[in-house]
Nucleic acid binder design. Structure first.
Lengths: 253, 253
DNA sequence: ACTTTGGAAATTATGCATTTTATATTGTAA
DNA sequence: TTACAATATAAAATGCATAATTTCCAAAGT
């Protein structure tokens, strides 16, 4: 992990993981000089990393005007979730149809690891632990991998990573108690029993519930009781992005 | 088309269109200096363009070893085609369900333009005309756009563009006579009649036939008088991952 | 025949010059 | 005095040329 083959790739990987973890606020300006100092690399490396991230959709590039963190929006989350349900369903059906013993074993292993990894790094602050995030990612990855289609898995990974931004963004805000272990276990059981319909239904419910929690958290933060008037002080900073202006999610801290 | 907002974006667009048209042979080394001279820009712009294209999977980046044109392979084409069938089906069903009058009108218009655009720029050499390629792209684009899902349309576009490399690669080799106009017309008719099952079935046949023509052309070129052997090695990795070596398609010219 | 060593070429990284954009200041008019 | 506008200053992004590693290729030596 600490041996990136080039400075450019190292900067890319670091910046990407920080973006996925929402360490940068959506819509925030990404100044090249700041990033140069932060990662101790030249501007070429930073620019190249930003270009790649832009083509992946994690940052937006405004010509002659630099780069910004890609915005989050409730509309985009709804769309993303629906599409992700469709793609995960394709993966799951394929995996259940074609998955062999190797797949089954990996699913069992990934489930075990997931259910035995502590969820919270800081229970009070409700911050997800990196280990749990990792285990969660590999569980879903392994579950889908059985379909054996590189392209389908690639599309799935793209959607998963974009969902991750929303998940991390609202992680600490989550106030709903849900039995994540049970959800994951039931999905895995249905898949291993080759019950496609049930597995897909459970997966869809799983994804939609996660999205609903994020959406509820955002809307309750926007209009709790019209009390928080200090939510957006002077630096209101409403950059007119090219698309998805409506209902944009902004950072609250 | 002649007003790219920056040199970088201009170089990116040009190089991309040349890659899609297979003006560079798959697997070919892309030397930065050559590209600098060819596009009359600095190495920064070229490097940035290559980075973006790498993250889109059109070129592969080998650390400390530069960039190469992403390889083509029969396994990748088979997988790509299957996934594309699934995604186009999702778009089509969504469009048929949600598409309104505006969508219908655009489909009719795109079909008209498509069927009235000459297919070949050079009949003897069987080279597709750029106008036809454009009309063909917008027809499929418009047909899918009715679903109204930005993410789904994005995934569709990614797959379409990657298919384009295979299409252009084998364009001049195509020896099969097919009634493309009829295929497109029947798809559009079924969609406008809201016959999802028929539309999807026709679309799948359309895509699979196109792929089959490419595969036949390649195999007949490789082993002119031998039967096509269908092997399925299992270690095909993601498009931006390590390249798949087996059964790679190389340039014959 | 195989390994080692040398040189050439290409990629990678950095710093600087140029051009564009954003901000602040000042001046003018209502 | 306030509001608006034009200019000037500052900051940032873009592009390029050069420097420094690394890799590749070939020739020489064991």
């Amino acid at each position: 992990m600490e041996s990136p083959t080039s400075l450019t790739h190292g900067a890319y990987a670091e910046l990407r993981s920080e973006l996925l973890a929402c360490n940068f606020a959506p819509g925030e300006k990404l100044k090249i000089d700041d990033l140069c100092r932060r990662f101790a690399v030249g501007s070429s490396a930073v620019r190249e990393a930003l270009s790649r991230l832009a083509s992946e959709g994690f940052v937006v590039s405004e010509p002659q005007r630099g780069f910004r963190v890609a915005p989050l929006s409730v509309d985009a989350l709804r769309d993303l979730t629906d599409v992700r349900c469709s793609i995960e369903a394709l993966c799951l059906r394929g995996a259940i149809e074609k998955g062999g013993l190797e797949w089954q074993s990996q699913v069992v292993a990934a489930l075990h690891r997931l259910t035995h990894t502590p969820v919270w790094a800081d229970k009070a602050a409700r911050r997800y632990s990196n280990e749990y995030a990792r285990a969660h990612e590999t569980f879903h990855e392994v579950l889908a991998a059985g379909c054996g289609s590189p392209w389908l898995l690639h599309l799935r990974a793209v959607l998963f990573n974009h969902s991750a931004r929303y998940r991390w963004f609202t992680g600490p805000l989550s106030k709903v108690d849900r039995d994540l272990d049970k959800e994951h276990r039931e999905i895995a059981e249905a898949a291993l029993l080759r019950d496609s319909e049930r597995a897909v239904a459970l997966m869809n419910a799983h994804l939609q519930l996660t999205a609903k929690i994020v959406l509820d958290a955002v809307s309750s933060e926007r209009e709790p009781a019209a009390r928080s008037s200090r939510a957006k002080p002077g630096k209101a900073h409403a950059p007119d992005g090219p698309n998805l202006k409506r209902k944009r999610i902004t950072a609250s801290a």
